[in-house]
């Protein structure tokens, strides 16, 4: 397996977005691309990342291989890459180590690292294509701000989606608060738009702590899509652009 990405910053941001949720993960390499699925230790949330082969500058994978990686170790290695460096990842069939090569844009600096891989026996969940009752698209900076603002008030947030608005409500020890967003009527910048697609109104409760973990993915995408159905896990998607892939989080709801 060998693959090269023009910008190391993409992998750095992906790692920042998952390393507080997951400690070890298998990076699954196949001819289709690079993917990862992992749950947090309490099995309340799941992260699913896909980087399509066509999004890489070069991608070669003769046989599917899983690279078991400790994310804290990978973070240490990626700290040595400049944001604008290209990154080449290599692994052989034995799968006991992975090689990372960082090259500066001017090609006058080349650094190489080798990472020992681990055997990770991870449980994979089959996540079927789901038709959600409510889909909300909003700026990822707005999502991050709401989670961080409401997170200081309480532990859970009630998300209510109607045709007219999406409302985030918190009820905590010191009092309560809410933020309500209405779909944008004037579209100045596509990245500032709030869009709601509704089959039926949804009203659900989630842990703010996890929503805040997911907000770490905001630097990956200008917009975020929240998909909800009654008594079903919330899906939060950050797309890296149409061709590249996505980072999705799933969060089990709090129910009676």
């Amino acid at each position: 397996f060998e693959a090269r990405l023009t910008q190391a910053s993409l992998i750095k941001k992906i790692l920042e977005a998952i390393k507080d949720l997951v400690t070890d993960a298998n990076f699954d390499c196949s001819p289709e691309g690079l993917s990862l699925q992992a749950m947090d230790s309490s099995h309340v949330s799941l992260v699913s990342m896909v980087l399509h082969a066509q999004g890489f500058e070069m991608f070669r994978c003769q046989r599917a291989v899983s690279l078991g990686i400790n994310l804290a170790s990978l973070t240490k290695i990626l700290k040595c890459a400049g944001n604008d460096d290209s990154i080449t990842l290599r692994a052989d069939e034995k799968g006991d180590k992975a090689e990372f090569v960082f090259e500066s844009q001017s090609q006058d600096r080349l650094s190489e690292f080798e990472l020992k891989l681990m055997d990770i026996d991870s449980e994979h969940l089959g996540i079927p294509d789901t038709k959600y009752s409510a889909i909300v698209e909003m700026p990822s900076s707005e999502y991050r701000r709401i989670c961080s603002d409401l997170g200081v008030m309480g532990d859970t947030v009630r998300i209510s989606v109607s045709k007219e608005s999406v409302k985030f409500q918190v009820d905590g020890d010191i009092g309560k608060g809410s933020v309500c967003l209405h779909p944008s009527s004037v579209v100045d910048k596509p990245t500032e738009v709030v869009k709601i697609s509704l089959e039926e109104p949804v009203d659900m409760i989630f842990s703010i702590r996890y929503l805040n973990y997911f907000a770490k993915a905001a630097p990956l995408s200008d917009t975020v899509t929240l998909s909800l159905s009654k008594d079903f896990p919330l899906q939060i998607e950050f797309k890296f652009g149409e061709q590249m892939g996505y980072l999705r989080y799933y969060l089990a709801p709090k129910i009676d």
């Binding site: 309490s42 309340v44 449980e123 969940l125 089959g126 079903f232 896990p233 089990a252 709090k254 129910i255």
Partner: peptide, 14 residues
Amino acid sequence: NKHQTTLEKYYDGH
């Protein structure tokens, strides 16, 4: 009172 469910309740493992 609400309680936190886990994902296995909704998705099959394989």
